[in-house]
């Protein structure tokens, strides 16, 4: 199935996720910004596991680090950890209904916040604001739309 997906969808989704991550938001809303890149990456890991793996997660993480000005390697680490978990549970995740998938995504994103906290603690950097712990919930709500949109784009190109 993935062999037939048009080649531009993956780079375009990655670019869109990076742009959405950089888009200026009003200051009080900033901590709630969902981790778009993670949503997009999880989609590709679930749907096209033969093409996208840990290396893909790592490289997109490095790219994100460059874009967001975070310590080089931080997001690479976060995304690699997330990709590994997704790969382990891919068989189950793939056949979950969308609602259950969204719950699993919330769990993944929450785990990601823990990784962030640990990395910042280890580097002696300031912790993100407490409100950032809500962003997994935003991610959970957005998983459905993101999944359906990417599915439409990926399969729509197959004639």
């Amino acid at each position: 199935m993935s062999r037939n997906s048009p080649g531009w969808v993956m780079p375009a989704s990655l670019l869109a996720a990076l742009l959405l991550g950089l888009l200026p938001l009003p200051v009080p809303l900033q901590p709630y910004r969902p981790y778009w890149l993670a949503l997009v990456m999880v989609y590709w890991l679930i749907e096209a596991p033969d093409r996208f793996g840990l290396g893909f997660a790592f490289l997109s993480g490095v790219l994100a680090d460059l874009c967001f000005g975070t310590v080089l390697g931080e997001q690479a680490l976060r995304l690699t950890v997330m990709a590994f978990i997704v790969q382990r549970f891919r068989a189950q995740l793939r056949f979950f209904p969308l609602s259950q998938q969204a719950l699993a995504i919330a769990g993944l994103l929450l785990n990601d916040r823990v990784v962030v906290a640990v990395v910042h603690l280890a580097l002696d950097e300031p912790q993100p604001p407490l409100a950032a712990w809500w962003s997994p919930l935003v991610g959970m709500v957005l998983w459905g739309p993101v999944f359906l949109l990417l599915d439409r784009l990926r399969l729509g190109g197959r004639k």
């Binding site: 840990l54 790592f58 310590v71 080089l72 390697g73 931080e74 680490l77």
Partner: peptide, 10 residues
């Protein structure tokens, strides 16, 4: 392997 690489980068 990837984690070690990421931590080295950090």
């Amino acid at each position: 392997a990837w984690l070690v690489l990421a931590i080295a980068l950090i």
